[in-house]
């Protein structure tokens, strides 16, 4: 084998390789187009995530603890029925009167959420005459701007979308459960069948179609206020809510910067 022959062979190999490289993007584009035809056939075509920013607010004073939102969420998102899987749930807070001799203005706090409040709330065991005040607090993913769940994910399966939702990519999720431990609000769970992390998506399949999330849709007292911050009409309920209420976030000291705003919560609410 002489040198010139070897050089010709090398050049041939090199040009062939370059040809393949040029053909790759074309092949990949074709493959993705075919795949898209099957996977996202049901997705709304005219929805651009960069042109929306969704916001959920909770008016605690209005919640009557009927649990219709929990029921609706389970039906809409096919959340497993067992009492440990929730994308949203309702907690009942009962604050007792201070016992004789106590210097505080309020006594012990009893919090319960039987089956997430899904079937409503059974009568409480705390005697009525001992109760100072009571209220219900609906909970859901706080949609943190600095979400600990997405920071904890080792494979980058959890992310912040341009329209203000924190989503899980089930194709990337390896089911390690770190995000479930990392969430300070307890909003995530491991799906028993897919073995991937699941959480509130703000009913992403509904909001992209111009519908409201299922919990907002069915709330009989408009305790949940939902809107698009980038396309907010002048008389939107969301504007009125922010204008007329003092709003708070849950666990602000953690620096997670939740986007879900709560009006009129007591200091006992965590």
């Amino acid at each position: 084998m002489n040198a010139s022959c070897s050089r010709r062979r090398w050049l041939g190999l090199l040009s062939g390789g370059l040809g393949w490289l040029a053909a790759l993007p074309v092949a990949r584009a074709a493959k993705t187009a075919v795949k898209n035809l099957f996977t996202s056939a049901g997705a709304p075509k005219d929805y651009d995530p960069t042109k929306h920013h969704w916001l959920m607010c909770i008016d605690v004073d209005r919640c009557i603890g009927c649990g219709t939102c929990v029921e609706a969420c389970k039906a809409e998102n096919r959340v497993p029925g067992a009492s440990s899987y929730f994308r949203t749930w309702v907690e009942r807070y009962l604050i007792r009167k201070p016992r004789a001799g106590m210097t505080e203005l309020r006594g012990e706090v009893t919090v319960d959420s039987p089956n997430g409040g899904r079937n409503g709330f059974p009568p409480t065991l705390v005697p009525r005459e001992e109760i100072l005040k009571g209220f219900f607090v609906p909970k859901l993913c706080n949609l943190c701007a600095h979400s600990p769940c997405s920071q904890a994910c080792p494979v980058g399966a959890t992310f912040d979308t341009p329209d203000g939702v924190v989503l899980v990519d089930p194709e990337y999720c390896i089911g390690c459960g770190f995000c479930i431990q990392a969430c300070p609000y307890g909003c995530r769970f491991m799906h028993p069948e897919t073995h991937t992390a699941e959480k509130c998506t703000l009913c992403y399949h509904r909001i992209t179609r111009g519908l409201q999330p299922a919990c907002v849709e069915v709330c009989p007292t408009q305790s949940r206020i939902f809107g698009d911050m980038k396309n907010l009409p002048e008389k939107a309920p969301l504007r009125e809510f922010i204008r007329t209420n003092r709003v708070f976030t849950l666990k602000p000291h953690l620096g997670t910067e939740p986007r879900v705003l709560y009006a009129n919560i007591d200091k006992e609410v965590r």
Binding site: N36, G42, F159, P170, Y172, L211, E217
Partner: peptide, 23 residues
């Protein structure tokens, strides 16, 4: 497409059919 994740994941999340029809 939008950040350090698969942009198609958004379409896949949106592809599900709603259960509640709306008012």
């Amino acid at each position: 497409q939008y950040g350090h994740y698969r942009g198609a994941a958004l379409q896949e999340a949106a592809a599900r059919k709603p259960v509640y029809a709306g008012a």
